[in-house]
Design a protein around this nucleic acid. Structure first.
Lengths: 343, 343
DNA sequence: ATGAAAGCGCTAACAA
DNA sequence: TTGTTAGCGCTTTCAT
């Protein structure tokens, strides 16, 4: 910074003003330009440590998650969070309590670094409390079911998932669409079913609850699916998850039916790689983990920056990036603020 | 810090010395104790930003990985790395280039924060170069196949995996053990096969390459496995990965054989949760991702601290923590330094 | 419109 | 054995 100042023939305070975009109406335009040019040439990068020492703003976001290291999707949420953060000039520190270190220890470590805000995810069907450590920070929840409505929540839009899955099946010619659901009454289970019903209704197909099978796992599930196929002869299946899709595959194989020819199967999955391995020809709707992470960071940063000064977002920030997926995951993602759905 | 100094009636430099454990032979023992006590009471936590501004040591480790967010195991490596790091007073910043942000951008962000060292993982069968950005830092590679022998590598010990898997099958009474391998000649493929052969040899079972099937995927794999079962009648299978194990399941189902009764199956898997869903009754050997992450950090920190001063490790640091797994993953992990296997 | 200077919390060389 | 002091790189108030 001193080098830049010297080379530009100005003082370091001027450089500081320019580099922080606080120069409008304060520094002569041409000088500002010169400073920027020289800073660029010299490859000057502000030292974030020094900056945060002064401002007590670290540009570090904490991402706290529980019970998560055993699932494939963490990486995706993290990825989305990273991407958004990096576009906004932040960095994400990830922490989970799954390992041998307790979450208190871990968040303690985080606290010392002085996060600017936190992402918290507890992707279970249980209603959970937000950890006390976090409530005094700007905070955004991801896929977390809580009664605490103080914080914005980014979650998947299960209704849309059910709706879209059913639509695809109908579009491809299916008439009798079975829903292989989860016997545990999760929010996803109920809401996807609503989406399914709504789409059937729109398509003029009568809802028939003989085509529903809410199953648990293993033999029980296999028997239920087998029975459903035998008695109802569905031509398509919408499955709650990879495991449920797999039961359909297994039964189809046993009964001499071929997926893709005799029946269509669409399912919700955590990870396409996994689905492709065990259930080839399954059309997988991936849960929008990447998008949730991405969006949550966008929201969190807006919270943080509103709280201080109104810094503008880089222009190239795309709230939700386009995806390769034929079913755009972006529509399966929504933000809740104070109990009202914003988007 | 100033508060602590005032309350203890000493100067801040004394406090600094004590807090950094530089007090032996410099500060009177009782004063040191007093300072520590008061610091504790006041809940004093050193500000890492200020510290690193002064020392240009950040206590942040960068974890750079490529092509990784689509796999379940990242989270485990990260977890292991986090646990070790947190025990050693470090924090891990994870970065992958999978998302929309390029790796250069991401590592640039990391560089500015001034990592103390890096973990790098490129878990492909291809031989890769270490990124130029990283070579000037203390660096440890994880599960990465490279010709560059300047850096220590932590990887899974594929020989042991093959050996153990075969041993378990033999111990449970198997006589004709098939190996369902990968037709792509990966290192893991070759080395596990060596372990398999070695164990057979030790058990006095002749090696029979009719019991080998190196397969790719889908129908080709299914046919090959079916053929092997029909012609060789193996009583046990050692499978290269989840997918190969699944082909055995599928064929067994088609041929009326029951896994666990008629045949035993053991397989290497990335993730037990996934295996349990699709291949129940499979004995899964999980790859030691957690351990690799953990151990890599231990090594990296020792590199970093040797380079500066010889700071001691916390006493409660267990190089590799005990696992619940019936097959201890620790034995499947090894460290390579300068082309020679250390441990 | 620009510069001088104080100080964020800490470390380490030097003085006492 | 302990205290004094000079910065680490940056932001920001206050003069100019």
């Amino acid at each position: 910074m001193k080098n830049v100042a010297d080379k530009a023939g100005v003082s370091i305070s001027t450089v500081s003003l320019v580099m922080n975009n606080h120069d409008s109406g304060r520094v002569k335009t041409e000088i500002a330009a010169k400073v920027r040019k020289i800073a660029n040439e010299l490859g000057y990068r502000p030292n974030p440590m020094a900056r945060s020492l002064r401002t007590s703003k670290t540009s570090i976001l904490g991402f706290v998650a529980e019970q998560i290291s055993s699932f494939p999707y963490v990486a995706k949420m993290l990825q989305g969070a990273q991407d958004a953060a990096s576009k906004l000039g932040y960095v994400v520190l990830f922490v989970t309590s799954d390992g041998s270190t307790s979450q208190e220890e871990q968040t303690a470590a985080l606290q010392r670094y002085g996060m600017d805000g936190f992402l918290y995810s507890q992707p279970s069907s249980q209603v959970t409390e937000v950890p006390d450590d976090l409530v005094h920070y700007p905070l955004v929840l991801i896929a977390t079911n809580t009664v605490d409505n103080r914080f914005p929540i980014v979650e998947s839009s299960e209704f849309d998932i059910g709706y879209d899955a059913t639509k695809r099946l109908i579009d491809s010619g299916a008439k009798r669409i079975a829903y292989i659901g989860n016997c545990v009454p999760t929010i996803a289970q109920a809401t996807r079913l609503e989406g399914y019903r709504e789409m059937l209704y729109k398509a003029g197909i009568p809802f028939d609850d003989n085509l529903l099978a809410n199953v648990s796992h293993n033999d029980e599930a296999l028997n239920a699916v087998e029975h459903l196929i035998e008695t109802q002869h569905p031509d398509a299946f919408f499955c709650y998850d990879d495991a449920r899709a797999w039961y359909v595959y297994e039964c189809a194989a046993r009964m001499g039916l071929s997926v893709g020819r005799d029946i269509s199967v669409i399912g919700v999955g955590d990870d396409k790689t996994v689905s492709d391995t065990f259930t080839p020809k399954l059309t997988t709707i991936e849960l929008p983990y990447y998008e949730m992470g991405y969006w949550a960071v966008c929201k969190l940063v807006s919270l943080i920056e509103k709280q201080s000064e109104g810094v503008m977002f880089p222009k190239d920030l795309i709230p939700l990036p386009p995806l390769d997926s034929p079913i755009p995951a972006r529509i399966h993602c929504r933000l809740i603020e104070n109990e009202s759905i914003v988007s």
